[in-house]
Design a protein around this nucleic acid. Structure first.
Lengths: 151, 151
DNA sequence: GTGATTGCAAATCTTTTGCACTAAA
DNA sequence: TTTAGTGCAAAAGATTTGCAATCAC
């Protein structure tokens, strides 16, 4: 009995707790913690930050034997974005990238590879003379640095 | 005879010359001055700078009774862009905008209207500590300021 | 002439939608 | 049990492509 209790306890720490975190993130966002959302949230909201597209995420989940329909992936990416858990980055008119790093930062876009990378803090400094039209706000300032091969 | 000569002269100044300018721009870009390219070049490369999409340009030409197929509009927009006569601006993953202002500048993006506007020179100042990977170059720095309604 | 360009229609690609089914509260 | 969420297949949009007809040189 003791062994079994220990095992349950470990499982509780290693598996239940992270689930709990993710469940709360979803609930705080007003989203039911379904199997699909939990899997996506664990993949996107835990662990190191990264940039995904709906397709890349779909492929990735599929390879991990977690099958979620592409339509649901799109739904979740947008729901997470609306909830402020993800950020959409527009760099390529052909596909939509989502960034799991929601802090204010800018991007390098490796044109040849179609890859996105965060610009570390302090590298770019923007001075603006704010001339905001009345009734409007600058809701976001996005800087994309296109990086190409020197040729 | 004198009147007719004057008329021809005016016509020459007002109509022939602009054609000549446009023909040369196209030829310099290695593009044959076809009827379609001339019409588009006159619309895009003469006159005040603006932002177009393939669809908006197609509609506009159609209203001016200049019928050019959408496929040709796409072709020309890309050919002009490759030739450095236009610039592509990525702000919206749903459609591609082309800017007739090819000088280095940034954009306001009116989110609600989906409208793009140039930021005047001097409003934004970017300081960078260049940390360019070897063999790479920063081919472009793009700043998009999202403008929303204050709410 | 001959090689580039055009226009059409079909194809492609990403993203969204309608709707019956399933799962969460 | 009631409402939200999912998955599929179909639809929608934007853009590209294949190819025969047309045009510029």
């Amino acid at each position: 009995m003791h062994d079994k209790a220990s095992a349950q306890n470990m499982e509780s720490q290693n598996i239940e707790r992270p689930f709990t975190r993710v469940i709360h993130k979803l609930q705080d966002a007003g989203l039911r913690p379904t199997r699909q959302r939990m899997a996506l949230a664990k993949s996107l909201l835990e662990g190191p930050s990264r940039h995904v597209t709906a397709e890349s995420l779909h492929r990735e989940m599929h390879q991990a034997n977690i099958n979620i329909s592409l339509a649901t992936i799109y739904n979740c990416l947008h729901q997470f974005t609306d909830a402020g858990l993800l950020r959409e980055v527009v760099v390529d008119s052909r596909r939509t990238y989502f960034d799991t790093n929601i802090s204010e930062h800018h991007h390098y876009f490796m044109v040849a590879e179609g890859r996105l990378e965060d610009v570390p803090d302090g590298v770019i400094n923007i001075d603006m003379l704010p001339d905001v039209p009345p009734g409007k706000v600058f809701s976001r300032v996005e800087v994309i640095i296109h990086v190409s091969d020197d040729s």
